[in-house]
């Protein structure tokens, strides 16, 4: 669909999405970078934005949905401002990674894969972040926290509230 027909479309941060689309206009194989940039904008991929990307790029919305659900890096639901990745890899597992995860779930009141209602935290698990010497570990955003015990969780989270 041409730009003219999408003129009336209205949703949050549309101008920024337009700028992203303009950057890739006319180039092939750019769906994933477009989606990555759009996700950076919202922290997730809102349906209206995906439908707009489909209209403007001509990639069918069903196919975009297929791509978004295939890659675990894309998210269809809003995410927390802080992303916690609790490691469940082998080294962390043998040193008590599971009890750390349980402490996180209890403290945040959510299960792994979920986001707190106040959108402050999203809790995820990862298989290894390559810091086995510090096991058990978790990452919050870009910070790595090692040699964790369930008791330390409350204090660490307080620093991100």
């Amino acid at each position: 669909m041409s730009r003219k027909e999408t003129e009336g479309v209205c949703f949050e941060k549309r101008e920024q999405v337009d700028a992203i689309l303009a950057e890739y206009e006319g180039k092939k194989g750019t769906l994933i970078p477009i989606l990555q940039e759009v996700q950076n904008l919202y922290n997730y991929l809102p349906r209206e934005a995906l439908e707009y990307v489909a209209e403007r790029t001509g990639v069918p919305i069903a196919e975009i949905y297929g791509v978004v659900t295939f890659y675990s890096l894309f998210h269809l639901d809003p995410r927390g401002r802080n992303i916690i990745r609790a490691c469940q890899g082998t080294a962390c597992h043998v040193r008590g990674g599971k009890s750390v995860l349980q402490a996180l779930e209890k403290e945040l009141g959510i299960k792994a894969g979920q986001t707190t209602k106040d959108l402050r935290f999203t809790l995820e698990t990862v298989a290894c972040i390559g810091a086995c010497g510090l096991a058990p570990v978790m990452q919050i955003n870009q910070d790595t926290h090692g040699r964790l015990t369930p008791e330390k969780i409350k204090t660490i989270l307080a620093g991100y509230r």
Binding site: L50, I61, A62, E63, I64, Y65, G66, T69, F70, L76
Partner: peptide
């Protein structure tokens, strides 16, 4: 749906054992 009818209603979504054929969302 895609090649003959041009409607593009369906796509594969998700991955591995969880793969399904579905309309968007």
């Amino acid at each position: 749906c895609r090649d003959v009818q041009g409607m593009d209603v369906y796509s594969f979504a998700r991955r591995g054992f969880n793969t399904i054929v579905t309309p968007a969302f």
